[in-house]
C-alpha cells in the first residue's frame, strides 16, 4: 500500500504532519522545541539509550554532561539524524522527526520529510568538518542556496555578515586548510548559523582545539547565546562554559538522566555521588 499521509487524518492531532512547513516557527510556549519520547538506541547488542524521555523548551540552553559512553553525543546525533532511532520518537517543535505513530503503529517518515525537518537543526562538530574542496565563503553559502533556495547575492551577503560576526570576514576566500583549528571551528559555526536554525547542536566543539584557541570559539558561542534565542544543546567538557551559558544541566550516566537542574545546583550542590565524582574528575 502506498503512503497516504497527505490524506490520512492525523491520529496525533498535531496541526501538521508534513514538515514542508511555513518556515515560521515557534508557536506557543507550550510546544517544546525538542521532545524525546521513549527513545531507545542500540548499537548491535549494546543499549546506549533506553526509555529516554525529556523535553527542551524553545530558546533553552541545555548542557549535557557525563562520563564518556553515557550517550550524550548519541542524543545530538539522533536529533541530527546521523544515527537511526532504534525505538521511540523525537519531535521537533511538536512535529515528528523520523518516525510517527499512525493507527498505533510506528511508521518511518519519508526521507524528504525528515530532511525538511532537519533544516531547522544545525550542528557543529568536534572535528569541524568543513568542506576542503570549497572556500570558506562557499562552505557557508552552499546549503542556504541549495536547500533554502536563497539567491546567491543574498546568501553571500548573509554569509559575509556571519563571517564578520565570528571575526573571520577577511578569510572568506581562503581554503579551510589554511586556517587554524579555532578559525575552522568558527567558520563551521557560521556555516551552521547560515541556515537560521531553531536548534543548534554543539558536539564537544572545543575538544579538538589547542588550548590557546578555545577562548575565541567560546567567545563566539557566548555572543550567540546572548544575542539570539536559538535553542542550544551542548555536549561539552568545558564545565566553566557550561555553567556560564546554560539554563539547565543534564547529567547522564549509562544512557539515563541521572539528575538535572540549573547549573548552580548541579555544579554547586550535586545530589548524586556519581555526579560529584564526575565533576571532580573533569575540573
Amino acid at each position: 500500500m502506498p503512503p497516504t499521509e497527505n490524506i490520512a487524518p492525523d491520529p496525533d492531532g498535531a496541526s501538521s504532519t508534513e514538515a514542508s512547513a511555513s518556515g515560521a516557527s515557534a508557536s506557543g510556549t507550550s510546544t517544546p522545541a525538542i521532545e524525546f519520547k521513549d527513545v531507545e538506541k542500540r548499537f548491535g547488542t549494546t543499549t546506549v539509550l533506553k526509555n529516554l524521555n525529556f523535553t527542551i523548551s524553545p530558546g533553552e540552553r541545555v548542557a549535557l554532561i557525563g562520563p564518556s559512553g553515557s550517550g550524550k553525543t548519541t542524543i545530538l546525533r539522533l536529533i541530527m539524524t546521523l544515527e537511526e532511532l532504534t525505538d521511540g520518537y523525537i519531535f521537533i517543535d511538536g512535529q515528528p522527526l523520523t518516525h510517527t505513530e499512525r493507527n498505533g503503529r510506528r511508521v518511518e517518515l519519508p526521507s524528504k520529510t525528515t530532511r525538511a525537518m532537519t533544516t531547522r537543526i544545525g550542528m557543529v562538530f568536534q572535528q569541524f568538518n568543513l568542506f576542503p574542496n570549497m572556500t570558506v565563503l562557499e562552505n557557508v553559502i552552499e546549503a542556504p542556496i541549495h536547500v533554502l533556495k536563497k539567491s546567491k547575492d543574498q546568501a553571500v551577503q548573509e554569509a559575509r555578515e556571519l563571517l564578520d560576526k565570528v571575526g573571520l570576514a577577511e578569510k572568506a576566500d581562503e581554503h579551510p586548510s589554511r586556517l587554524s583549528g579555532g578559525q575552522q571551528q568558527r567558520v563551521a559555526i557560521a556555516r551552521a548559523l547560515a541556515m537560521s536554525p531553531e536548534v543548534l547542536l554543539l558536539d564537544e566543539v572545543t575538544s579538538a582545539l589547542d588550548p590557546e584557541l578555545v577562548g575565541d570559539v567560546l567567545a563566539v558561542l557566548r555572543t550567540i547565546a546572548e544575542t539570539t534565542d536559538i535553542t542550544m544543546l551542548l555536549v561539552t567538557h568545558e564545565m566553566q562554559f557550561a555553567r556560564e551559558v546554560s539554563d539547565r544541566v543534564m547529567m547522564f550516566d549509562g544512557g539515563q538522566v541521572l539528575e538535572e537542574g540549573p547549573p548552580n545546583q548541579i555544579f554547586g550542590a550535586p545530589r548524586h555521588e556519581r555526579t560529584r565524582t564526575f565533576l571532580s574528575s573533569v575540573q
Partner: peptide, 23 residues
Amino acid sequence: VARGQWEAAIALSLSPARRMVRI
C-alpha cells in the same frame, strides 16, 4: 572520503544527489 564530510552534508540537509556532486 571522511565520514565527517558525509555527516556535515547531512547536518546541512543537503539532498543525497547534491551531497555526492558537491561534497
